[in-house]
Each structure stands twice: as structure tokens, then as C-alpha cells.
């Protein structure tokens, strides 16, 4: 009898419990701070220019060779980033490039919604990398 009452309270408690499941289209998981996602090129908030000068250190660091960087010299001897391409199909998300960057010009966004029908779409150009991924926690 005691066991029956005990079981009743367990069932009764479970009726009003929030479900563990996260129902995707309506709810989103907030992933923790510092989680490693796709590279993101930082932008200087004052001048709205890309901080990266294209020194190419991340290209040397990367063991998979997924980053291609090119710089170009503008007038007055100033060096500007010309091309920055990330091949997502090669990237292993180790985060070494962010750690070694001297300019502190790249960081890892929270963007994880990655799946493509075509492999060519996995190559991200500069314009796509600059974009902040929706809200900073574009994730579900």
C-alpha cells in the first residue's frame, strides 16, 4: 500500500515536469560560451574594416590546409586582406589558428548549422565569413 502511494506521487510529479526533449522548431539549445564553431573574421567596430591584414600565419599553422589567405598592397604601403577562404570540408575545428593569431583578428563563432547538398557550397568566402552568424548564438 505504501509503495502504491509512493508510485502515485512519482507519476503525479511527472505529469507537471517539463519534458527533457528540446522540440526543435520551437525551442533552441543555447550552447555554452567558448564552444568552437566556424571561423569568423572580426570587424573593427569603429572603422568597420576587417582587422585581419593577411599575414598568413593561420595558413602555416593549420595542419589540414583549409585556409587560403592573400594580401594586396594598397597605396601608401598599406597592406589589406584580399582573399580569405575557408574550406569547411577540411577543417577539424581544433582552434589552433585562433590561438596563434597575433592580430587577434579571428575567433570562432557558434555557427554549427552546417550541412550542404553540394560540396562546393562548403567553401566559405570572405564575405560570408565576415557576417556575424545571425545573433551571436545562432544555434538551436
Amino acid at each position: 500500500m505504501l509503495r502504491l502511494i509512493k508510485n502515485f506521487f512519482i507519476v503525479f510529479g511527472n505529469i507537471f515536469r517539463k519534458p527533457h526533449t528540446i522540440i526543435y522548431p520551437r525551442e533552441r539549445i543555447i550552447i555554452p560560451d567558448g564552444s568552437r564553431g566556424v571561423l569568423h573574421l572580426k570587424v573593427d567596430p569603429d572603422s568597420l574594416e576587417i582587422i585581419c591584414k593577411g599575414c598568413g600565419l593561420c595558413k602555416i599553422i593549420c595542419s589540414q590546409g583549409c585556409i587560403t589567405v592573400q594580401k594586396r598592397a594598397e597605396d601608401k604601403g598599406r597592406e589589406v586582406l584580399d582573399e580569405f577562404c575557408l574550406d569547411l570540408s577540411k577543417c577539424i575545428f581544433c582552434g589552433n589558428c585562433v590561438e596563434f593569431c597575433k592580430m587577434n583578428a579571428i575567433d570562432m563563432s557558434y555557427k554549427y548549422q552546417l550541412a550542404e547538398f553540394d560540396k562546393k557550397n562548403l567553401k566559405l568566402e570572405k564575405t560570408e565569413l565576415v557576417k556575424p552568424s545571425g545573433t551571436i548564438r545562432d544555434f538551436w
Binding site: P32, D33, G34, S35, R36, F93, C94, G95, N96
Partner: peptide, 12 residues
């Protein structure tokens, strides 16, 4: 673990 290291499986 992820909040500490930044990855679930391969912490680096």
C-alpha cells in the same frame, strides 16, 4: 566539459 574546453569529444 564543453563549457570548459570548447568541444564535446576532442578537447584540444
Amino acid at each position: 566539459i564543453e563549457s570548459i574546453t570548447g568541444s564535446r569529444i576532442v578537447p584540444n
